[in-house]
Design a protein around this nucleic acid. Structure first.
Length: 434
RNA sequence: GGAGGAGUGGCCGAGCGGUUGAUGGCGCCGGUCUUGAAAACCGGAGUGGUCGAAAGGCCACCGGGGGUUCGAAUCCCUCCUCCUCCGCCA
């Protein structure tokens, strides 16, 4: 959420910068001036009446104490109270409207955000490694995985539905190895604290990070409860500090968590229908930082490097792009996407997205800190990034490490996590071993 | 799931429906005293909104929401959270 005073004082600038996101990004902002003025007018009105009532209440108390008659004043105040009730409803409505307008606006892109409206406009920042050479035509991971007997979409559809997967044997173990490998690197080498949060959150948490109210359709909700499946660990991790005032010397807080992520993928029909790229459930190790506002952009660079370190250790070719203003997520002011090379499809695919939300989420979730010398609290900056999406790492390994005989080599860094296994070879096709 | 109990400022803890934004203690900040510190004493300090150039007013906030009343931290309803007991359960 944007700061009310900031929007009021910089309305034109905010409108101009939001327009960089696209034609609809600043929708409703034209109503701001009027709504804001009307809200303040009606607040002043009702507060003046309240003041009168408070004063009169003291007077009534005094009269009664002295055994004097207060009935005239009480009768008058009864009228005033009725009037307050009316005006208060109007003021509350206006306040809610303004809040709704503000809560519906996306974050203002950072100064440096490149212009553009589609992923094609995202400039490449850097590139690491080289494309693997194949003496044969590399296959997509769904063919490899099913042939190896480690990936099973058919049975997943039977027990659940489309866009779910069952992993068998070394496929399941590879997923688990990646989970442990990523958490170990981030906690032992990159300085993050491991957290295991609930995989279900309430709507206040989802408001805090910006998924609600606007993107309810992207989420899975539990029937009969104010509970939602997490779309990313960013939600529970960032909301850990909701409503808290942190000490300046606690910052930056660096957290890493493994969770499954659940997304309805409404509106993505027909997109990435094959394979693991777009699933209703996928696993992810997420990084979250709560940072001092003066440090948040340096922390964003660091977080992106931390995510990259995983791909480097796995020796997977990738590039880093910076999202153009039109491609930025709702809460983000600046985002780097890391895209891994997927040879079966000959494209770079997003495997991590690292964002600085500045104070946008902090305002929604009311996360503040007390500056070292100062007394007045300030909003923190929040950052989040995938470190990494495990399913997409899994498929990148399959496609990049595939051999002509259909087997897949296991990256050296992962072998200690797989009892030293060096290679995935075909097992009995989709048959559960005894 | 059932039956009880409780939620007050950074923490602990008072609070007959009427100067209680809230006593007291601890902690915190400033000062006096001291070479310095401690102790003692004096003083200060919440968050948000709104009006104002500022000084400073005003309004709201005692878990959340609603109600009763001229007036609610105090009474009623409801939801949430925590504690105790019972049931169930990994």
């Amino acid at each position: 959420m944007l700061d009310l005073n900031y929007v009021r004082e910089n309305l034109d600038l905010v409108a101009r910068r939001l327009a960089l996101r696209g034609p609809n990004a600043a929708a409703g902002l034209d109503r701001f001036r009027e709504l804001d003025a009307e809200r303040r007018r009606s607040l002043t009105e009702v507060e003046t009446l309240r003041n009168r009532r408070n004063t009169a209440s003291d007077e009534i108390a005094r009269l009664k104490k002295n055994k004097q008659d207060a009935s005239a004043l009480i009768a008058e105040m009864k009228q005033v109270s009725d009037r307050i009730k009316e005006l208060d409803e109007r003021a509350k409505k206006l306040d809610a409207d303004l809040h709704e307008l503000l809560a519906g606006l996306p974050n203002v892109p950072h100064q440096s955000a490149p212009a553009g409206s589609t992923p094609e406009d995202n400039p490449e920042v850097r590139r690491w490694g080289t494309r693997p050479e194949f003496s044969f035509t590399p296959k997509p991971h769904w063919e490899l995985g099913e042939a190896l007997g480690i990936l099973d979409f058919e049975r997943a559809a039977k027990i659940t539905g489309a866009r779910f997967a069952v992993y068998w044997d070394l496929g399941a173990k590879l997923e688990r190895a990646l989970q442990n490998f990523m958490l170990d690197v981030h906690t032992r080498q990159n300085g993050y604290t491991e957290v295991l949060p609930p995989f279900i959150v309430n709507s206040a948490a989802l408001f805090g990070t910006g998924q609600l109210p606007k993107f309810a359709g992207d989420l899975f909700k539990l029937e009969g409860h104010d509970f939602w499946l997490v779309p990313t660990a960013e939600v529970p991790l960032t909301n850990l500090f909701r409503g808290e005032v942190l000490d300046s010397d606690q910052l930056p807080i660096k957290l890493a968590a493994f969770t499954p992520c659940f997304r309805s993928e409404a509106g993505s029909y027909g997109k990435d229908v094959r394979g693991l790229i777009r699933q209703h459930q996928f696993q992810k190790v997420e990084l979250v930082k709560i940072a001092h506002p003066g440090q948040s952009y340096a922390e964003l660079e660091g977080m992106t490097r931390d995510a990259e370190s995983i791909l480097q250790k796995l020796n997977l070719h990738y590039r880093v792009v910076e999202l153009c203003a039109g491609d930025l997520g709702f809460a983000s002011a600046k985002t780097y996407d890391i895209e891994v090379w997927v040879p079966g499809q000959e494209v770079f695919r997003e495997i991590s997205s690292c964002s600085n939300c500045e104070a946008f989420q902090a305002r929604r979730a009311n996360i503040r800190f007390r500056p070292a010398g100062g007394r007045k609290t300030e909003m923190v900056h929040t950052l989040n990034g995938s470190g990494l999406a495990i399913g997409r790492t899994w498929l990148a390994i399959l496609e990049n490490y595939q051999q002509e005989d259909g087997s897949v080599l296991i990256p050296e860094a992962l072998r200690p996590y797989l009892d030293g296994a060096e290679r995935i070879t075909p097992r009995g096709r989709l048959a559960a071993k005894s």
